[in-house]
């Protein structure tokens, strides 16, 4: 199939970007979306132009590197699918596809479709862990954990940190990402010990980074390739209230 691509090109963070139109010719429906971009890039390189820069690595939907806004939707039209796992059979010959980077002030564009997501790392650094050092951990079976809790924690822990939730949100809110980590750790006995500190610190860092507020629209949940759900945000809101009132009392 042949496609027309409108791709956001931007030399670096300081210069303004614009859409550039490219033709993608002889695209197989078996290709992944990124392989289609590879084909376009090969042609660009051969004509001496710089390739379209986009983040990608594992190409199997788990590393969280890739992230393209395809026709206005983060990771494209297919639910629960990262950009790398989206295949061209979901497009038709002659389609025009608009490809943009994640748009959010805390995710500044580095180049073309590549954005800086280190804000997420800083949020985790502020408290997204259990403070145990290597060595001295009790036996793995010393504390039993109800299967249901472990399963729920795992549901939340599946987050790949791609940032699609922020990209989808009209307010660029990071609450789904932050709440997934708070839920994952807060649901486990090991993580409960410092749950209050964690939620206060992570939320403070999230605000510091300039992410917007949750207006409970659910766009994040719809865009999430790992199907992280909104009830994590409710859980975080609850934990935050508990933590802030407790910290006042103590």
């Amino acid at each position: 199939m042949n496609l027309t691509l409108r791709v956001w090109r931007q030399k670096n963070a300081k210069t303004a970007g614009q859409f550039v139109t490219y033709q993608a010719r002889d695209i197989s429906s078996e290709m992944s979306f990124l392989e289609m971009l590879d084909v376009v890039n090969e042609e660009l390189i051969k004509s001496g132009e710089e390739q379209i820069a986009f983040d990608h690595d594992c190409r199997e939907g788990i590393c969280g590197s890739c992230g393209l806004v395809i026709n206005g939707t983060p990771h494209g039209p297919l639910a629960a699918t990262t950009s790398c796992q989206l295949h061209m059979r979901f497009f038709k010959d002659g389609d025009t596809i608009t490809i943009e980077p994640w748009r959010a002030a805390p995710f500044p564009v580095i180049k073309d479709l590549v954005v800086d997501r280190t804000a997420f790392d800083r949020i985790i650094q502020a408290g997204g862990y259990v403070s145990v050092s290597t060595g001295g951990a009790p036996d793995g079976n010393a504390v039993s954990i109800p299967k249901d809790d472990a399963d729920k924690a795992m549901d939340a822990a599946q987050c790949i940190g791609c940032g699609a939730c922020v990209a989808a949100c009209k307010n660029a809110s990071a609450m789904l990402f932050v709440s997934a980590k708070i839920s994952h750790l807060g649901l486990l006995p090991q993580g409960k010990v410092e749950a209050d500190h964690r939620v206060l610190n992570m939320v403070a860092q999230m605000d510091e980074e300039g992410f917007g507020n949750c207006t409970n629209t659910g766009s994040c949940e719809a865009a999430c390739p790992k199907e992280i759900t909104l009830d994590n945000i409710a859980r975080m809101n609850r934990s935050y209230a508990k933590a802030i009132f407790k910290s006042k009392l103590s």
């Binding site: 206005g72 009209k170 629209t217 659910g218 865009a223």
Partner: peptide, 10 residues
């Protein structure tokens, strides 16, 4: 704002 498409799921 995004140039293309409509808002996700809201």
């Amino acid at each position: 704002k995004y140039a293309a498409g409509k808002p996700v799921a809201s």
